[in-house]
Design a protein around this nucleic acid. Structure first.
Lengths: 136, 136
DNA sequence: TCCTACGATGGACTTCGTCCAAGTCAAGAA
DNA sequence: TTCTTGACTTGGACGAAGTCCATCGTAGGA
């Protein structure tokens, strides 16, 4: 059983075959699948798994902080299992592919108090846009 | 006629009443409307304007670089007419409202060459997330 | 004023995601 | 091991956001 599954059991997650398959599909680095791709890959191993279950499970993994939602303008959300190591994203404007990157600096600290307008700022998301070697 | 409309005419834009109304709705600072809100406000002045026209016009304004699309996870896109002055966004996780902010620092420079993986990085988008005073 | 290519229309369609009632099953209790 | 129960899954309906397209209308140049 993967580390992820072990942690989930430790949190009282009921371990069903569907959840196991979804968690396994999301294993690895630089994985940024859409819900539909997750469903496709999960269905390859467990043909009867439903779309609703995939959405439910992804939502739970996000709520538990095990998986990040990556926002992509005008496309389907992507899910990033690498939530435990903080990182940002580099997105190709051509083909939509995503790389994890680790900028230096402190983006959160770069926002002065005067620019927070009374908001309680909890996180910052930095997305670099450009063209990958294949699309350039 | 606003500056925006003047610029658009200069670029050969055919000025129809529909486009004029959409451009007028998007005038001002700290305006971050969804396509639907734009349609609603435009229809208040020009009742027969169609959704398709609003989408077309917004798409053209984005392509011309006059308006920015603001990505919001799991919600409708918002359109930001303040494309000419560089800024970033502070988004309320509760109600989805958006403020323009101006962080210090150089987010683009914070990405080391070794972390660019051969990409031609053109821009960076920084989104701060938190709760506005009303939702906190 | 007339022409015509560009733009607008609205309704069908697609994509992405959520909801729900009914059926199923993991895992603790006995 | 079997029972029990409530959490989980299912599939289909639904909804929101956005796109497409055939047809009609009109801005603006001749």
């Amino acid at each position: 059983m993967s580390d992820l599954l072990r942690r989930l059991r430790g949190r009282g997650w009921r371990l069903t075959s569907q959840r196991r398959v979804v968690a396994e599909v999301l294993d690895g680095d630089h994985v940024h699948l859409t819900a539909d791709e997750v469903h496709l890959r999960a269905a390859a191993r467990l043909p009867e798994i439903s779309r609703a279950t995939v959405y439910n499970t992804l939502g739970e993994l996000v709520a538990l902080g095990e998986v990040l939602e990556v926002s992509t303008v005008g496309r389907a959300k992507r899910y990033d299992p690498n939530a435990r190591r903080p990182h940002q994203h580099l997105v190709c404007s051509g083909c939509g592919s995503v790389r994890d990157v680790h900028p230096v600096g402190d983006a959160l600290g770069d926002l002065p108090e005067a620019e927070r307008f009374g908001f309680t700022v909890g996180s910052v998301e930095v997305t670099y846009r450009g063209l990958c070697p294949g699309c350039a």
